[in-house]
Design a binder for these strands. Structure first.
Lengths: 218, 218
DNA sequence: ACGTAACCTGACCGAGCGGTCCGCTTGCGA
DNA sequence: TCGCAAGCGGACCGCTCGGTCAGGTTACGT
């Protein structure tokens, strides 16, 4: 992804790389991006040095995992663009997003901290944002969502729904569904009151990514 | 607070303690609870050892600061119980909460991680929750908030509003106002759809606090 | 003025982190 | 089958952290 561009790998190296990526994905999902490289290496059954042979830095490894997740989320979104009911499609998109955060602590730390200086992650994030905007647009046109809601709003409010329930952790693991629905009700035109602040622009979004990347990076 | 119960302190010790608390509050606000003890001690102009003379552990120091903030938030809430308009009072309560999170990184990490095993923090949290429930009840009775919303919901959704805008950090520092209003619109009866999950009970809330305290503490 | 207990300090400890490096192993083309 | 470059691994480095402690300092009751 980031190191070893497309140069053919030796068979054992390819196998190790696969094991590494799997172990990293699982470990980051369980413990967040603070999980140690040593732990991931042990889980993959390889030496710590081998990790750094495949990924120059921990951030690069995180970026690779993050790319994967963002792409998976995007794929769900594009699939939903064909759905008959735009409102239901948008809700399911957000539901998928929160579900992924609930299952994957790494994913829910995206947007804060490390790994946003990586151009691949940036690109994957932009594609996801485009998908969100497309889904929001369909729902807006149908009138099931208020007119002043953007794709950025959808992304950020998905994050909000998860974060609301996060402190309740394992005590009530599905609590996020409650808050996602409260928030989704807030998107409906019926209850809409004027909003005191404009939606973030795509440029602001990108700037935020740069900023958090710069502060988190080396 | 946690160490040195109420035994009279020597003048210099009292002065140092004050300086320590101020420095800790400022540093935790700027950098979150990960700020190092050494840094706080330097800012207070005292030695590192002195910090541990006043607070046996870093968690105890965090707990003292956290108690203070929770009490301040509670005070705002009880003041709002007398306000003429229950809806406006509830909105202002939530606004204050998000504002405090935006200004204080330590405060916005409350509910996750360290320092919840501390009984004083627990008690302060319970008092805050009671206040939230009282404010929610007034708004509910007036019909400006849907009937199925509890004090716990108010607390968790205040957190949600901040967390939604958090990735945009300093790029759009007031963006949280937008999402707080979206969420508040979701609380209105006009757009209310049935919620797929019950509100957390007080007992669950307490259990969640214990859990995160147990995993964060030594 | 003085003795003492309370207090302060910064060197020190062990643990854990990301990242490096060099000697050994091994897949694979010829 | 053989030679070698690609790959591997774990000891090792430098760093930061929370927390400890021996020894010097100082406020304060008498």
């Amino acid at each position: 992804m980031t190191t070893t561009p497309p140069g053919r790998l030796r068979a054992d190296a390819a196998h190790n790389r696969r094991a590494l990526l799997d172990a990293a994905a699982a470990t980051f999902a369980e413990q967040g991006m603070d999980a140690s490289i040593a732990q991931i290496a042990a889980r993959a059954g390889i030496g710590k040095g081998t990790v750094f042979r495949h990924f120059a830095t921990k951030s690069h490894l995180v970026a690779a995992i993050l790319c994967d997740r963002l792409a998976a989320f995007t794929a769900v979104g594009t699939g939903l663009l064909d759905a008959a009911d735009p409102e239901a499609a948008l809700l399911e998109f957000m539901t998928t997003g929160v579900e992924m955060q609930a299952r994957d602590r790494c994913f829910c730390e995206a947007g804060t901290g490390i790994a946003h200086s990586d151009p691949e992650v940036r690109a994957a994030g932009d594609r996801l944002l485009d998908t969100a905007e497309a889904l929001a647009d369909r729902a807006r046109r149908q009138g099931s969502v208020r007119a002043d809601i953007t794709g950025e709003d959808i992304m950020l409010l998905s994050r909000a729904a998860y974060q609301a329930a996060a402190p309740m952790g394992d005590v009530a693991p599905d609590l996020w569904r409650r808050y996602l629905h409260v928030i989704f009700d807030g998107l409906r035109p019926e209850a809409a009151h004027p909003l005191p602040h404009p939606a973030p622009t795509g440029a602001e979004f990108a700037a935020a990514m740069d900023e958090s990347g710069a502060s988190g990076g080396p």
